[in-house]
Design a protein around this nucleic acid. Structure first.
Lengths: 125, 125
DNA sequence: ATAGCACCTGGAGTATACTCCAAGTCAAGA
DNA sequence: TCTTGACTTGGAGTATACTCCAGGTGCTAT
């Protein structure tokens, strides 16, 4: 698969795909004649993982570490599990922060909806 | 309340508090003699709101817009409600992204835990 | 064979959100 | 009075994650 197809498929720019590979968020992609990237199914798996984790807010650094460990083989299994556990913890914190903010927004919005009827706001900012 | 007390109370650096005020994430804080900031309860409310929303991932820009609208008075009620609704939508998307990533992490972690028993990984990366 | 196009690399530039720093002011205690 | 320490401002610097660009290569269709 070419970089333009992958870009299309995952909604990541070609520059971003090359950048991810360059800094190690995904492992190196094999090239065909002329040095052109030819993405395999496995490469796509890494890209999708990176996209999923990035969209949830995981840092590039964590992803790079994970990829590095994965490339070192089976003796890094425990380290990888620990890394994933750490990231999961971070995610749960973020989840809670969003939940709290949403609750607050809901309250404010309900107040604004109420105020829309009377045309003024007497309570808070 | 002094900036050092506010910094302590909310876990935001003094630089961050001044920065927030400078760019308008919170409204201007009244000064006492010598130009020293003296935070009121209302100021604290804005700071707490900013902290809550920022920790959930809302952009500075959105917060600045909200503060600007709030400072313009009651004729911006509808605009503020719309802004909050937009931000709520963003938040829900982020919530879902985290949920999906967490699910994926949980699966991977369970696989790693399993692999810890056998000492090797046969399945995926 | 030559124009066009997709691709390549290395490096510079950008946006966001801080974070740090220099130089100065001011009030209070020794 | 002099020093200390908390505070002030404006501006520069930093980290993260892209994003853009110049200059070059190589396949393909005319």
């Amino acid at each position: 698969m070419t970089i333009s197809e992958v870009s299309e498929k995952y909604g990541l720019s070609q520059d971003t795909l090359r950048y991810y590979e360059r800094i190690g968020v995904i492992p190196p992609v094999k090239r065909k004649a002329g040095g052109v990237r030819d993405y395999t199914e496995e490469d796509l798996g890494w890209i999708e993982l990176a996209k999923c984790m990035r969209s949830a807010g995981l840092s590039m650094e964590a992803l790079i570490q994970y990829v590095n460990l994965a490339r070192q083989g089976d003796e890094t299994i425990a380290a990888r599990r620990d890394l994933l556990n750490d990231q999961r913890k971070q995610l749960m914190k973020q989840y809670e922060a969003i939940r709290a903010a949403k609750e607050r927004l809901d309250y404010k919005i309900s107040r604004y909806d109420e105020a829309m009827k009377t045309g003024r706001l007497s309570w808070d900012k």
